[in-house]
Design a binder for these strands. Structure first.
Lengths: 216, 216, 216, 216
DNA sequence: TATGAATGAGCCTTCATTCAT
DNA sequence: AATGAATGAAGGCTCATTCAT
């Protein structure tokens, strides 16, 4: 119980940093801002994090975890991989489009990672997590339903995340040009065209059937 | 001399800033660094740009122009929109994967634009330019060849750029996981699936057509 | 247990401080460093010493005592004051030249005493102790052996200590220029020249006496 | 003329630092104190000296030069080395006993040099200068006057400076115990006993004569 | 057009000290 | 007797900006 106090404070600091970072961005966030936001002295912040860098590392990690968690939730339910992917994409886009603090922080620190090696670590493991998670799902369910991915299943989640992240950037920069419905619809069409339908039961060689199926 | 001394100096400053920014990132770049890189005094930099913000604005504009220019070149040649898009994607990815100074600077300042309205302007017009340029191309050529885009042609370039930008982020963060060949192959497959082949009057049932269909 | 826990801890703290001070110097030693060296918390150090100043005072006192103790040992044995002084000087120089932690701390805090009155107290009593101790020795033995000091015997030990301390400073600053043998030889010659030989009644013209004379 | 301004400011800063250092000591002197004393902003001080250490280095150098200069002046006049040494010692002690700012600063930074290699350099060259200067003087004049030093002439100035510095330390720590007249008298006696008198004209082998001469 | 000097606010960090437990 | 947490005042240093020249 004695030692919990520190953990609590650390938690508060990380949360406050997330808010400030989302509001002002890495380049314009000082420890003073953070201390004010968390309602502590600068010294207290340094008591828990020896250096600003260390704090930022922890914050990035936390933000990645939070985003990953949302990603995880999105996938658990679906059965049919195509439907799963559709609804997941819709969810994933919504999560991004809301521009939660965590999303902003990840975006911001991702740019930092261009010049700071250490920042890459949590980001890399986030992408790897998201990638393998979906890959497993596809490997398990797709074949059973006669859906054959047109590209390496390992790459599908990376492609989808890239699409989402890239669209988010455009939305940030130019919100009027990016309507959520357009994005979602485009995403669904794209997702669909990543698979070919291969009827399990009867014939396999009717490209027309595959055509119709995948185009739906 | 055709150019005033001032214009030349401004050019030097912008170039130098591009280098420094690519090297150190916005958050860790000071006017001192820039002045050193140009070989001028800090005062001189301030003579040409009243404020750091103004300089950054000009630099971002220049970087966007440079990137747009490369994008433009990539599209001019192609005839068949599908082939054009394929080769364009390959080019666009190569340009990004090289991580030129301009690319880095755009990525870096894009993150800044999350918190700085003014920075969004040149970025927005870059995306709009890239978007409309390709849109025009598609509108002109696609129909003539019996290719019908499955999604709003206005959106296709945005999707493609999103894909490229998003993949670039993953490559920055975790280079080992992103092989250039994989990316290019995935992009081509995706590009292909964005179009349906609609048999024009005469030539119809060639297997090639069926092929195009299944590739949708 | 004979000693209270508190006394033991105080001892540990003082010892640790001595080590840290010898290693880093007063100006670059923080309570944190000391707490780390003792293996205690900063709070614990403050429990035993209300203030950093108080701790430093105690440390200086201890260091002075330690140095004085070594000085004391050096003098007890000899009989002939001249011989005693010779061997003592040799010893005293060796002690200094070894640059023990205590020696370093005394030297360091001596400089502090330029600006901090309280620090002067233990240093002053160290010098007084060293002075009176030797003075007594001289007063007792010198006359009996027909040796007459050329300068006030009260001053002789101060002179000798000054010489030793001053040489030490030069050795610290420029070790290559100060060879221990040179120092010792010079000190012995000097010590000898501080006394005149006064023939006592009987034994007179021995060459040894002349020798003693020329050494004055 | 334009560039002189910087030199003037540098001069002011060094002078002010000397005053503050003499007043408060190295360990308790901040750049703020210095900036206040010189009537400039902290930034201005950093403009001229990139780091506190650099400033301190320059100050130590200046202080050493100042002290060396006074030492130099003291020696130029005298003819007879013994007389010269006597009056020089008197002068050197007076200079020290006044505790000028330069003297204090040298004493203070000398203690720092225990833990900071760079500080040793100017101090070492000060001692070397003082040493060689007097050595030359002795070599030139002593023999001509029939005075033979009892110890290596190279070492005489080092011994004398050690004596002076050591006495100064005692005076700082315990002023009441160190009377200037006592010091000077002791120094003269000591100086005298460092030489033997060897009559040039007639016989050289009379130890008695040497005895009388050196004892004077 | 460009420089050198100076400013002052702000930054990250350190530190002696306090206090509840 | 000792700890962990927190404070707040400096501390050294950086930086965008100003200005006389």
């Amino acid at each position: 119980m004695r030692y919990k106090k520190s953990e609590i404070s650390v938690g508060h600091i990380v949360e406050a940093t997330m808010r400030v970072l989302a509001r002002q961005g890495y380049a314009h966030t000082s420890l003073m801002d953070i201390a004010n936001e968390v309602g502590m002295s600068k010294g207290a912040v340094h008591y828990h994090f020896p250096t600003k860098e260390a704090l930022m590392g922890k914050v990035l990690e936390t933000a990645c975890d939070a985003v990953a968690e949302r990603t995880r939730k999105v996938w658990v339910e679906g059965q049919n991989p195509l439907d799963a992917m559709r609804s997941a994409l819709r969810e994933l886009w919504t999560v991004r489009a809301e521009l939660s603090n965590e999303t902003k922080v990840v975006a911001d620190l991702l740019a930092q990672s261009l010049h700071d090696d250490k920042m890459r670590v949590p980001l890399a493991s986030y992408y790897r997590f998201a990638s393998t998670q979906v890959e497993d799902h596809l490997r398990t369910n797709a074949a059973a339903l006669g859906l054959r991915p047109k590209i390496d299943p390992k790459f599908i989640p990376r492609i989808m995340h890239a699409l989402l992240d890239g669209m988010l950037m455009q939305k940030i920069v130019d919100p009027e040009s990016i309507k959520d419905e357009d994005v979602i619809q485009a995403l669904e069409t794209l997702a669909a065209s990543l698979f070919e339908f291969i009827p399990v039961a009867d014939a396999v060689t009717t490209p027309a059937a595959a055509d119709g199926g995948s185009a739906t």
